[in-house]
Simulated scan of single mutants.
Amino acid sequence: MSLNKEKLVEDLSKVFTREQSEEVSADKSIERLVNGIASAVDVFVKSGQVNVTVSTTGSATAQTGAGTGNIT
């Protein structure tokens, strides 16, 4: 699965929209924005998958195949 850039844009838009209407603790704006952006990027990166080809040697029957895993 490829990374979903549209979802990242949507999540970042939500972060900025939420901040735009913030009226309490404006002095903590940078902290809220940074945390929101970091969370959106974290979800974006972890939504990807890595596909690999696996081969082994050193046994009577060498093994080959493909693997898929999530980014953690």
Rank of each mutant, 00 (worst) to 15 (best):
V54Q: 04
S21A: 15
V15H: 04
V52P: 02
F16C: 07
K7V: 03
Q63C: 04
A38W: 03
E19I: 06
E19Q: 14
G36M: 00
T53Q: 12
Q20C: 10
D42L: 04
G58W: 04
K46I: 11
G48P: 11
L12H: 01
V54H: 05
S55P: 01
K46Q: 13
A26H: 08
S29V: 09
V50M: 11
E31Y: 05
G36H: 00
D42S: 06
D42G: 04
G67D: 05
V24D: 12
G36C: 01
N51I: 08
S21M: 10
I71Y: 00
I71T: 00
M1E: 10
V43N: 12
L12A: 03
V54S: 05
N70L: 13
N4F: 01
N4S: 11
E22G: 02
G69T: 13
V45C: 02
T53P: 01
N35E: 04
T64S: 14
T57C: 02
S13A: 13
F44H: 09
G48D: 14
K7W: 03
G48E: 11
E22R: 14
A60F: 07
S29C: 08
T56A: 07
S47H: 09
V41K: 13
G48C: 08
M1V: 14
M1W: 08
E31S: 05
F44P: 02
I37H: 00
V34C: 01
N70S: 15
T72P: 06
G69V: 10
S47G: 15
S47E: 15
G67S: 09
S47W: 06
T53M: 04
E6Y: 09
S39G: 13
L33R: 08
F16G: 03
V54T: 07
D11P: 03
K46A: 08
E19A: 09
V52N: 07
T56K: 09
S47A: 15
N35H: 04
A66W: 07
V41P: 08
A66E: 12
T17H: 12
R32N: 06
E19C: 10
Q49V: 11
R32D: 01
Q49N: 10
G65N: 04
R18A: 11
G69I: 08
D42Y: 01
I71S: 02
N35G: 00
S2M: 11
M1Y: 13
V54L: 14
D27C: 02
K46F: 02
G58N: 05
Q63M: 08
Q20S: 15
S13W: 02
L3M: 09
S39Y: 01
L8F: 08
I30V: 13
G48L: 06
S59N: 07
E19V: 03
D11L: 05
Q20K: 15
T57L: 07
V24N: 10
G48M: 09
D27V: 03
S2L: 12
D27F: 06
S13L: 09
G69L: 14
R18L: 06
A66D: 10
V54D: 08
V9I: 15
E6S: 15
K5H: 10
E19F: 06
V34I: 03
S55I: 08
L3Y: 10
S2F: 08
V15G: 01
L3C: 06
N70P: 05
E10M: 11
I37M: 00
L33I: 15
I37F: 00
M1D: 11
A66P: 04
I37P: 00
K28R: 13
